[in-house]
Structure formats: C-alpha cells, structure tokens
Design a protein around this nucleic acid. Structure first.
Lengths: 137, 137
DNA sequence: ATGGTTGCAAACAATTTGCACCAAA
DNA sequence: TTTGGTGCAAATTGTTTGCAACCAT
C-alpha cells in the first residue's frame, strides 16, 4: 500500500516524503472520502494538519486525489478512482458512490448553447434520504 | 420590485421586515448570483452582514432563493428561478446559466442502483474556459 | 549541499452565535 | 404588547501563510 503510494507520488514528479506517502496510503485505504482533519487525526503524529492540506492540494492537482465540496462541512478527499459522483443523505450525511454520469451529449449541448470556449469538467452530487433516515420520519 | 419581494416574503409566512424586503428586492434585481457580503455592501446601511446571512438562510429554506456552493470562495445566492445550473470559468470565475438538466431517467437509475429511499435533488455545475480566458492562453 | 518540505503559530475568510435593543403584527 | 428580528461584537470553523528547522535527492 505504501509502495503503491510512493510510486504514484514519484510518477507525478513529487518528492516522496514520509508524510505524503503516509497520506496517500491512508487515502487509498479509506473506503469513503475523508476530510483533511480526519486524515491528520488518523495519522496522528505522522503529519501535521497544515501539511495534510498542502499535500492534499498537491495530490489533487496531480490527479492522484479528488476533492469533493459539499454544501456543508469541510471538503472531503478521496484517492483518484474512475470518474464518478456521490449520493448524500440530507439528514445524516451518509455518502454513497454513484457510477453513472451525464450523457456526453448533454455536455456538448451545454457547450454549444454557451459563450464558452470549452467545457472540461463538471461536479454532480445527488441529495436524498438514506434508508435509515427515511424510516425515522 | 419591493412590492413583489414583500408579497413573496409574506406568502411563505415570514415577517416582511425592511431588511428582508430590501434583500430579496436586491436579489431579484441582480442578473447574477451574488455573495452575502456583496449584498450587504450593495445595501450599505440597510442591513448588516449578519442579518444578510440570516435572511438568506430563511429565503433559501423557503425556496425564494437558491444557494450555490462553488469549490472556491463564498456561497452565492440568486432569487429562485426555474431549476437550472451554471457554467463557471476556471480562470476568471465568470458564470453563465445552463438551462439544460439531467435526464430524469438518470435520477431514477441512480435511485434504483442505490441503497437510498429517495433522491430529491442534485447539484450540477460545469467548469470550462470562457472565450476571453481561452484566448489569453 | 541545497532547495523543496515540514511543523508550529499566527493570520485569514466565511459563517454562526450571544445578547441587549428594536419593530412588525 | 409580545414575539420575533436586528446590529454589534465575539466565537467558530475551515483553510492558508510566514518562517526557522529539516530532510529527500
């Protein structure tokens, strides 16, 4: 796991410091997106929260990590995986992966109708109620 | 404009205070989404920034305003209009409306494949380069 | 060796909260 | 009149920056 992290970091031209390797390894090991604070806490003593923010910014720029911004709370990070989206419970925040994506025709229609030169990316999150929270109502 | 704002506020069961009416009127008058701070500044003396935040939260809950959270910078607000999305320039932040939306079949597929009880809403923003910024490269 | 990287403290940005005063219904 | 709303100041939360010590290459 650490080896994979180390290789990936070197591959994008970054120095493989102890902290960055530990961070990416933790990210790869995490089944769910996590906040910078949670990562720093999980790796208590191995890296400072400031370093976590700096490293996450680098990994995100290098496309080794993905940064998810939700309407509430801190940004969440996950190791880069095939393009996907999320479904978030409005009440408890529970988060599930969504593999489906926009039809590519939609993106080209958006570009065609716009005054933009290019449309390169999008963010798409779904909001609803998870089973548990739906039952409580 | 103020009358429209006052009526709308009363219609959702909120008190039509001077500040709330001014805020919603400003929101209705604004062609583009604006931050709470920009609104408070625009209405300098008419309402405090704190009040702006409080009022915007109420209007948003009452579906009179929409809150847009982008990956950077403060949340932006706009008077509620028919459901739509945005296209944001990665370099200058220029923001354009997108009237197109997800095919409804996509949302039901997402629900079907998930462990959720319902999918009620989504956020969808597109990112690209506006004409001006594309030329500068 | 040396230039990028780290940790700590301090700054910052966006937003929220507490509380005494004020105003809409 | 009374219940909720407002402004101001202060607290919180999330994130960034400055800088001396440090370590990967």
């Amino acid at each position: 796991m650490k080896d994979e992290a180390q290789g990936a970091i070197r591959a994008v031209g970054l120095r493989a410091t102890r902290q960055r390797v530990a961070l990416l390894a933790a990210l790869l090991a995490s089944p769910k997106p996590v906040s910078a604070e949670a990562l720093a806490k999980r790796l208590d003593g191995e890296l400072d929260l400031t370093t976590a923010y700096r490293a996450l910014a680098e990994l995100t720029q290098a496309d080794l990590a993905d940064r998810i911004v939700l309407p509430e709370g801190p940004a969440l990070y996950e190791a880069m995986r095939p393009h996907h989206h999320h479904l978030v419970c409005r009440l408890c925040g529970r988060l599930e992966d969504v593999s489906m994506c926009l039809p590519s025709t939609l993106t080209s229609q958006v570009l065609a109708k716009s005054d933009f030169a290019s449309v390169e990316d999008h963010s798409l999150e779904f909001f609803g109620l998870c089973m548990k929270c739906a039952k409580k109502r």
